[in-house]
């Protein structure tokens, strides 16, 4: 009983978060049944007819299904890889900046784009990358390089999407690694210095190995998003010229399900994505444990 009187405030503090989780993450799961229904909002869950796996069949029967899934995978894998490498490297570099004020300023500046919405950034990028006097192409022109149709050429579109995403998000990712860096025991560096290790050797043998577990955590967690290639971004940037390289599952679901109102289909695709993500997370989790002897949970 003594512990209860001491700990009850903590329990109280947990409840709002728990409630939130239940209301917004668990209760909506009941909606999964829509994936197997020809769901009509006005008929509700009880009135809509069951159609079995028709929605899943429809997802794979479209002539462009494979292409769309492939686009999603390519774009999201590239994003995951670069969103890991860039913040990782950047955190180490920033750690070497000895002027505290400078490193803090840089950290804040690179963190800022994270707060911009893709609606705004999309508009800016369209002008920035325009072949018709956009800044990027003017700079290229200065070096004698031909105008690049960044948003109208499929391959360049992928590059644009990945680079702009990394630019926007790497500051956010850096924070995690900087926190991990702060946790490295300083005595390791002191010992290395006594042994005569250069800064490069210190980075190679102390900093990087100490950061790896965190990199594995981040990588594992992001695997769950492998079928999310970033709806807001693609939707605000894509156009019919890059459908073959840039149409992803989410934009395609938006067009069929939201615009045309087929919610059952949208749910089916969402369920499909969740199942794949869960499998990937389980696999990655096991791998992380096996290879790096690291447990996330």
């Amino acid at each position: 009983m003594a512990t209860w009187t001491r700990t009850w405030p903590f329990h109280l503090m947990v409840w709002p978060a728990l409630l939130f989780l239940i209301v917004f993450n668990y209760v909506p799961m009941a909606g999964i049944v829509m994936a197997f229904m020809d769901y009509k909002p006005w008929l509700g869950f009880t009135g809509s007819p069951w159609i079995g796996l028709d929605h899943f069949r429809a997802l794979f029967e479209r002539d462009d299904s494979i292409q769309v899934i492939w686009n999603t995978l390519v774009i999201s894998v590239l994003k995951i890889v670069f969103n890991l490498i860039v913040p990782f490297t950047f955190a180490i570099l920033l750690n070497e900046v000895r002027k505290r004020l400078l490193s803090r300023t840089i950290q804040t500046l690179v963190y800022l784009p994270h707060f911009l919405s893709w609606v705004i950034l999309g508009g800016i990028l369209v002008n920035f990358l325009s072949t018709d006097g956009g800044f990027a192409n003017r700079v290229l022109g200065f070096f004698g390089l031909g105008p690049v149709f960044f948003l109208g050429d499929g391959n360049w579109f992928r590059v644009t999407v990945v680079v702009s995403e990394v630019w926007k998000e790497f500051g956010y990712g850096t924070i995690v690694f900087i926190a991990a860096l702060a946790n490295i025991n300083p005595s390791l560096y002191e010992a290395a210095e006594v042994d005569g290790a250069s800064r490069w050797k210190q980075t190679l043998h102390i900093t990087i190995p100490s950061l790896l577990p965190m990199a594995i955590v981040v990588g594992t967690l992001s695997l769950g998003n492998i079928l999310n290639a970033g709806f807001d971004q693609i939707f605000n940037l894509y156009n019919s010229l890059v459908y073959d390289k840039g149409d992803i599952i989410d934009t395609f679901v938006y067009r069929t399900a939201i615009i045309d109102g087929d919610f059952g289909f949208a749910t089916a695709v969402g369920l499909f994505k969740s199942v794949i993500s869960m499998l990937l997370i389980i696999v990655a989790y096991r791998l992380a444990y096996k290879l790096a002897n690291y447990r996330v949970f």
């Binding site: 369209v126 325009s130 072949t131 018709d132 149709f149 948003l151 109208g152 156009n239 010229l241």
Partner: peptide, 8 residues
């Protein structure tokens, strides 16, 4: 004659 980025 028409905008280079008409598709956008």
């Amino acid at each position: 004659y028409i905008p280079a980025e008409a598709a956008l």
